[in-house]
Design a protein around this nucleic acid. Structure first.
Length: 814
RNA sequence: GCCGCCUUGGUGGAAUUGGCAGACACAAGGGACUUAAAAUCCCUCGGUGUAACAACCGUACCGGUUCAAGUCCGGUAGGCGGCACCA
C-alpha cells in the first residue's frame, strides 16, 4: 500500500466542505442533552484582517468544544461580529464609502480567514451588531435601562478625546490618552447619556464569588470597582475668621476611611471645584488667589494632574475656618487638586500624621502634625499602619486599637447626628454617548413638553438614516444632527414636534449582550426565547483577553445583572467560567504592530505549513496564559510533527486493538491529553503526543488501535489531517468528530517496572528498576536486596529510610 | 506609591504541586543518504572536569525550614501587567 504526500491545502478544503455540507457543528435543538456553551470574544472586523493573536483564543476553545462534542455534549460554539466602531467610521470618512459597505467587506474577509483555519463554529448563528435585527434589541435593552432610571443625561465634566472628538468612559482613558487613537484627553463639560453602573457596584463585587473566573480577573475587577468603607463626617465652616460670633456657618461633609484619626485632623481640604468655594467667596479675603488656582486646575488635563502628583499645590481660604467636631478646634481650610471633586464628597479632613499625601502637604505648607496613633515615627513619615498602633492624643479613644477606635467614633458621630458609616466606590457611571455616526442610535426623542420620551418598542429598530457626510460638525456634535429629516419628528407621547437624540451608543453596547443572542439569533419577538436562554445560559466557558477585564467583561456583567433583575434572563451571571490567553508578540519579542513591522499574517503561515500545523503551533508555542514571541522556525517544527504523524500510516500493522507494546503508553497518553486540554495546558498535551510518536518510530510499528487513539486525541488540534488519515485507512465507519472521546484504564497505564532514584543522604547515587505497584515498605525491601544498592550501603549504618513509591528511595546513613 | 504576576540551557518552554531539573521543540554542531543542495534519518547539545567514566557546581541573589526545595517561608535585585493624589 502506498500513501500520498501530506498536502494540507487540498485536505483542509475537502474537510471544511464536508463539515459545512453535514452541518457538523451546528448546535442541536434537543434540550434533553447536556449542553456546553463555549465562547470567545467576537472580533472587531478591522480592515487588516485576522492577526495571529485571534487564533490563539479561537483554537483553544475550538479544542475544548470539539472534545465536548465527542464527550456527548450538545455544544454551542458561535461566532459573530462586533462591527460598530471608530476605525471603520474613520476609514469610511477617508475613503468616502459608507461604513456599512466597509463593514461587509471586512466581515467577509474575516469569515473566510476563520473558515480557512477550520474552527468548528456554528455559522448558522452568526450575529452582527450592526444588523438592525440585532441592534433592535440593543436599543430595547437601553430603553429598559432608561425606564428603570439607570440611564440619565448629565453635563458633568467628561473625558474628551481631542483627536476623536468624542467622550470617553474612564475605562477608555489610558495614561491620560485615548485608548483607541492615543490622542490627548482633556476634561470637558458635555451633556452625555450616562448609565448608572454604580448602582450595581456591590452586586458586581458579590457576584464574583459565585463564578469560576481566573483569580487575576476577579482581583482586577474588584480593584476597579474599588469599594472602600469609612465614614462621612460633618464639619462646620465659619466666616469671618475674626470676631467672636461668625456671621455665617455652613456645613461641609467630608469622607474619610480613617474616622479613628479625627483628633489628628489639623486642616481641611476642598477640591477646587467644591461649590462652597463659590458660596463663601465674599468672606474669602484672598479670593483672587483662589480664583487663579481654580482656573489653573481646570486648565490641566487629568494626565497633567497625575504627572504632578508628587508636588502638592494648594491655596488656603483665608478669612474662614472649619471646626473639628470632636474637640471644637479651629482648623484652616484649603483647596488643592489632590482632592478630587468626583470621589466621596469632594472634601476631606486632613490628618498629616497618618496619611502620606496629607503629610507631604502639611510639610510643604508648614501645617501642624498631630500624632494620634502611636507606633510610627512621624518626624520622618506618616504612620499609616492600621493593624498595629494604639490611639493617643484622642480623648475618649485613647488606648484603643485602630479598629476599636473606628467603631467607637462612628457610634459617637451617629449619636451626635454629625456623621455615619459610609461606603464609597471608585467606579464611575458609564459615559454612554458618542457623537458619531457608526453606532446604534439612542432611541429617545426630546419633547419640549414631555422631556425625554422613549421611541415606542414596536417602532424598533430605530435605524441609522442614510447620510453622506460622516464627519462630525465643527462643534463636535454627531453627524446625525445634519440629518434634519430624521432628527425632526413628533413626540410619541403628545404628538407635538420633537427632536431625536443624535448621539449614538459606544462600541461596548452591542458586545454587552451578544452571547444571549447566540441562544436564539433569529428571534423577531424577543432578544431570545426564554426556553432557549434557560437551556443555554450561562456561557460555560468564556475565553478572552485581559484587556477587556474592566471594559467589556464588567459592562456585560452589569447589563446581564440588570436584565436578570428585570426578569429578562434566567441567570444572575452571564459567564460561569472565564479564562484569558497571553498575547502573541512579534519575533523580536515586542508587541506586534504595523509600525514595528513585526506583524505575522496567518494567511502566509497557513499557505506555507497548512492550517493544522498553524493551529498546532499556536497551541504548542508556550503556556497558554503567558505572552509569547512568535517563531516561524517553531511553527515549521510543528509541521514536521504532523508530517511524522502522517508517515506513521506506513508503519501501521493490521492489528485492530491497542498493541501490547504501546498499551500503557496509549492509556497514559489518553489520560495526559484529556487532563491537559481541560487545564488549557495545550503545550504539554502536544509535547506528550510528540513523545508518543517518537516512541512509535523507535518501536518501528503501531497497531490500528494505537493510531485510532492518537488521531482522536490529536483531532481537536489538527482536525483536517486526522480525519483524512482516519478515512484513508478505514479506521472507523464514522468520521472522528462523530466518535466518542477515548477513555483510559488506570490499571493499564502502569508499566511492569519503573525506574526509581536511589539517594544516599539526599544525593542521587544510582537508578534502579523496581516492580511497579510496590508500596513504601516493599520498595525499601526490594532496594535493600538490589546488588547496586547493597554496594552503595556497604559498611554504612542505616539511620532512616524514606521511600516514595515509584519515585525514589533515600537512605540516611552514618 | 499600591495590587497582582513573573525570573529555569543559546531560544520557547517542561517538571504529576515538596520527590530523578532541563520533558517536548527551535537553533547550533557532527554524521548518513545525495554528483550537489533541499528534504529525511542518526548522534551531540547547562557548566567545570575527564581519553571516557567519576566527581563537583547549577533553576535571578542572600538566608531559613526539610531526609529532600525550581516548588514552602523571610529578605534583596530585575522584569511584566493593572491601578494611580480614590482620602
Amino acid at each position: 500500500m502506498s500513501f500520498n504526500e501530506y498536502n494540507p491545502s487540498s485536505i483542509e478544503k475537502k474537510w471544511q466542505g464536508i463539515w459545512e455540507a453535514d452541518k457538523a457543528f451546528e448546535a442541536s435543538a434537543d434540550h434533553s442533552k447536556l449542553k456546553f456553551f463555549g465562547l470567545i470574544e467576537f472580533p472587531y472586523p478591522s480592515g487588516n484582517g485576522l492577526h495571529v493573536g485571534h487564533p490563539r483564543s479561537n483554537t483553544a476553545l475550538d479544542i475544548i468544544c470539539r472534545k465536548r462534542r465527542m464527550e456527548g455534549y450538545n455544544v454551542l460554539f458561535p461566532m459573530g461580529w462586533d462591527a460598530f466602531g471608530l476605525p471603520t467610521e474613520n476609514f469610511a470618512i477617508k475613503n468616502q464609502i459608507h461604513p456599512a459597505i466597509v463593514t461587509k467587506q471586512n466581515v467577509d474577509h474575516f469569515r473566510d480567514q476563520l473558515k480557512m483555519l477550520g474552527f468548528s463554529f456554528d455559522w448558522s448563528r452568526e450575529v452582527n451588531t450592526t444588523d438592525p435585527n440585532y441592534y433592535r434589541w440593543t436599543q430595547w435593552i437601553f430603553l429598559q435601562l432608561f425606564k428603570a432610571g439607570l440611564a440619565y443625561k448629565s453635563s458633568m465634566p467628561i473625558n474628551w478625546c481631542t483627536s476623536c472628538k468624542v467622550g470617553l468612559a474612564n475605562e477608555e482613558v489610558v495614561n491620560g490618552k485615548c485608548e483607541r487613537c492615543g490622542g490627548e484627553v482633556v476634561r470637558q463639560v458635555k451633556s452625555q447619556w450616562m448609565l448608572k453602573i454604580t448602582d450595581y457596584a456591590d452586586k458586581l463585587i458579590e457576584g464574583l464569588d459565585s463564578v469560576n473566573f481566573i483569580e487575576k480577573v476577579k482581583i482586577q475587577q474588584r480593584n476597579w470597582i474599588g469599594k472602600s468603607t469609612g465614614a462621612e463626617v460633618d464639619f462646620t465652616i465659619c466666616a469671618p475668621a475674626n470676631g467672636e460670633n461668625p456671621a455665617v456657618e455652613s456645613k461641609v461633609t467630608i469622607y474619610t476611611t480613617r474616622p479613628d484619626t479625627l483628633f489628628g485632623a489639623t486642616y481641611m481640604v476642598l477640591s477646587p471645584e467644591h461649590k462652597l468655594v463659590e458660596q463663601l467667596a465674599l468672606y474669602i479675603t484672598n479670593n483672587d488667589q483662589v480664583l487663579a488656582y481654580k482656573a489653573e486646575a481646570a486648565r490641566k488635563s487629568d494626565f497633567e494632574r497625575t504627572e504632578m502628583a508628587k508636588d502638592k499645590t494648594g491655596v488656603e481660604l483665608k478669612g474662614i475656618y472649619a471646626v473639628n467636631p470632636v474637640d471644637g478646634r479651629q482648623i484652616p481650610v484649603w483647596i488643592s487638586d489632590y482632592v478630587l471633586a468626583s470621589y466621596g464628597t469632594g472634601a476631606i479632613m486632613a490628618v498629616p500624621a497618618h496619611d502620606t499625601r496629607d503629610y507631604e502637604f502639611a510639610k510643604t505648607f508648614g501645617i501642624d502634625i498631630i500624632e494620634v496613633v502611636a507606633g510610627g515615627d512621624i518626624s520622618k513619615e506618616a504612620f499609616t499602619d492600621i493593624q498595629e498602633g494604639t490611639m493617643i492624643n484622642s480623648g475618649f479613644l485613647n488606648g484603643k486599637t485602630v479598629a476599636e477606635a473606628k467603631e467607637s467614633i462612628i457610634a459617637w458621630l451617629e449619636e451626635k447626628g454629625i456623621g455615619h458609616a459610609k461606603v464609597n466606590f471608585k467606579l464611575r457611571d458609564w459615559v454612554f454617548s458618542r457623537q458619531r455616526y457608526w453606532g446604534e442610535p439612542i432611541p429617545l426623542v426630546y419633547c419640549e413638553h414631555c422631556g425625554w420620551v422613549p421611541v415606542p418598542e414596536d417602532q424598533l429598530p430605530l435605524e441609522l438614516p442614510a447620510i453622506e457626510q460622516f464627519v462630525q460638525t465643527d462643534d463636535g456634535e454627531s453627524p446625525l444632527t445634519r440629518c434634519t429629516d430624521w432628527v425632526n419628528t413628533t413626540c410619541p407621547h403628545c404628538g407635538q414636534p420633537a427632536k431625536r437624540e443624535t448621539d449614538t451608543m459606544p462600541q461596548w453596547a452591542g458586545s454587552s449582550w451578544y452571547y444571549i443572542r447566540y441562544a436564539d439569533p433569529h428571534n423577531n419577538t424577543a432578544l431570545a426565547d426564554w426556553d432557549e436562554m434557560n437551556y443555554w445560559l450561562p456561557v460555560d466557558w468564556y475565553n478572552g483577553g485581559m484587556e477587556h477585564t474592566t471594559l467589556h467583561l464588567l459592562y456585560s456583567r452589569f447589563w446581564h445583572k440588570f436584565l436578570y433583575d428585570q426578569g429578562v434572563v434566567p441567570t444572575a451571571e452571564p459567564y460561569a467560567k472565564r479564562t484569558a490567553h497571553g498575547m502573541i508578540l512579534g519575533e523580536n519579542g515586542e508587541k506586534m504592530s504595523k509600525s514595528r513591522g513585526n506583524v505575522v499574517n496567518p494567511d502566509d503561515t497557513v499557505a506555507e505549513i497548512g492550517a493544522d500545523a498553524f493551529r498546532t503551533y499556536e497551541m504548542f508555542m508556550g503556556a497558554f496564559d503567558q505572552p509569547i514571541p512568535w517563531s516561524t522556525q517553531g511553527a515549521r517544527g510543528c509541521r514536521k510533527f504532523l508530517d511524522r504523524v502522517w508517515k506513521l500510516q506506513e508503519k501501521m500493522t493490521a492489528e485492530e486493538e491497542v498493541s501490547a507494546a504501546l498499551k500503557s503508553k496509549v492509556h497514559g497518553l489518553i489520560k495526559k491529553v484529556s487532563d491537559d486540554y481541560e487545564k488549557m495546558k495545550f503545550n504539554t498535551a502536544i509535547a506528550a503526543m510528540m513523545a508518543f510518536i517518537n516512541e512509535a518510530y523507535t518501536l518501528g510499528s503501531v497497531s490500528r488501535g494505537d493510531m485510532r487513539a492518537l488521531l482522536q486525541l490529536l483531532n481537536p488540534v489538527a482536525p483536517h489531517m486526522t480525519e483524512e488519515i482516519w478515512e484513508a485507512n478505514n479506521l472507523g465507519a464514522q468520521p472522528i468528530y462523530k466518535t466518542a472521546w477515548p477513555t483510559y484504564d488506570e490499571a493499564a497505564i502502569a508499566e511492569a517496572e519503573v525506574e526509581i532514584a536511589v539517594q544516599i543522604l539526599g544525593k542521587i547515587k544510582a537508578r534502579i528498576m523496581v516492580p511497579s505497584g510496590l508500596d513504601a515498605a516493599g520498595t525499601e525491601e526490594f532496594a535493600k536486596n538490589h546488588d547496586a544498592v547493597k554496594e552503595l550501603l556497604d559498611g554504612k549504618t542505616i539511620v532512616k529510610v524514606i521511600a516514595v513509591p515509584g519515585r525514589l528511595i533515600n537512605f540516611i546513613v552514618r
